[in-house]
């Protein structure tokens, strides 16, 4: 077991390393660099050259990569070109905001999606089951951009909730928690709704399979009440699919969503990454990619562990 975890950790390190290296190299290969995007087309050549020299973008890819690796070995991932701050300062600050959003959305999606999936999966037909399933498919086929936009639109037009951002300007500190919760509703819903739909579909399908299995029928035949069978015996067997993906979902949620964070003006990691991509902020891109791969590695590890708990066959 310990050697298994050690191996997984080693792979996680390799993943983070290769992903951030590849991002750095690709960022250099993409046409244009930070200086062209920040100075525009009308800057004088000397100004551009000076700026390149200042940001040390005049080095070859190989040289730049080597310097970066040497720094990364000492956990110095370079300074963001755009914000002129160490990448290791910028990322945790935004990752914390994304984490608040991601965990809220995950909790909401689990609390909504799983029970609905159990209900729709354990009974055949019925208007409620159909309605839930249709709603899930609508949410799964809506582009995330539109879902977010629609929620922001609804929030603005009803006036019930803030249009975006993470806090109201000058909110008093005693009301800060409540203020944060109010601001969380729209972005969390934008993330949670499609996720809940996914959980619902997965759980429903697994449930309907399990409910038809001999052991469930046998339990029912022994006279155990149906509700108890569904919620106790069948549920445990049908949790496998959701358990299998849960960690992966955590991993991707923690990396932040471009669409949701941009539309709802949530100051998270996804938005930071998007800005960095657009500005060709090579080190910040590499840093964001590294953070993303870290979350993913942790997520898949979690996922495998959860799967082993539900279904001992898949463990080592």
């Amino acid at each position: 077991m310990i050697s298994y975890i050690a191996r997984r950790l080693a792979f996680a390190v390799i993943l983070v390393f290769t992903v951030s290296s590849a991002s750095l190299v690709l960022a250099r290969l993409a046409p244009g660099d930070y200086v062209t995007t920040s100075l525009g087309i009308d800057a004088r050549r000397e100004t551009v050259e000076r700026a390149r020299a200042r940001y040390r973008l005049d080095r070859s890819i190989g040289e730049q990569y080597r310097d970066w690796i040497v720094g990364a070995a000492r956990l110095d991932f370079g300074r963001s070109l755009v914000y002129d701050r160490p990448v290791t300062d910028l990322i945790p600050e935004r990752a914390a905001n994304t984490a608040v959003l991601a965990l809220t959305a995950l909790a909401a999606a689990t609390l909504i999606g799983l029970p609905l999936g159990i209900i729709t999966g354990s009974r055949r037909g019925g208007v409620a089951a159909w309605a839930i399933r249709a709603a899930s498919l609508v949410l799964l086929s809506m582009p995330p951009l539109l879902t977010s936009l629609f929620l922001v639109f609804a929030a603005a037009r009803t006036g019930w909730l803030p249009v975006g951002g993470m806090s109201a300007a000058g909110a008093a500190s005693e009301g800060a928690t409540f203020d944060l919760l109010r601001h969380l509703v729209v972005p969390a819903a934008a993330l949670a709704l499609p996720l809940a739909a996914m959980f619902e579909r997965l759980q429903a399908q697994a449930m309907s399979e399990v409910v038809g299995q001999p052991f469930v029928l046998a339990t029912l035949a022994r006279g155990v009440p149906r509700a108890r069978v569904v919620w106790r015996d069948a549920l445990k067997a049908a949790l496998r699919p959701v358990a299998a993906v849960y960690g992966l979902v955590v991993g991707t949620l923690l990396s932040g969503s471009f669409a949701v964070e941009v539309i709802t003006a949530w100051p998270g990691l996804g938005r930071l990454m998007l800005d960095a991509l657009r500005a060709r902020d090579v080190y910040l891109v590499a840093g964001c990619a590294a953070a993303g791969s870290m979350f993913l590695a942790a997520g898949t590890l979690m996922s495998d562990a959860a799967l082993a708990l539900v279904d001992p066959r898949t463990s080592e």
């Binding site: 996914m198 993906v245 669409a259």
Partner: peptide
């Protein structure tokens, strides 16, 4: 059985 990672990936691609 365990179809979910897709929606996640979809989200990344789309957004």
């Amino acid at each position: 059985v365990m179809g979910a990672p897709v929606a996640e990936g979809a989200g990344r691609l789309q957004s």
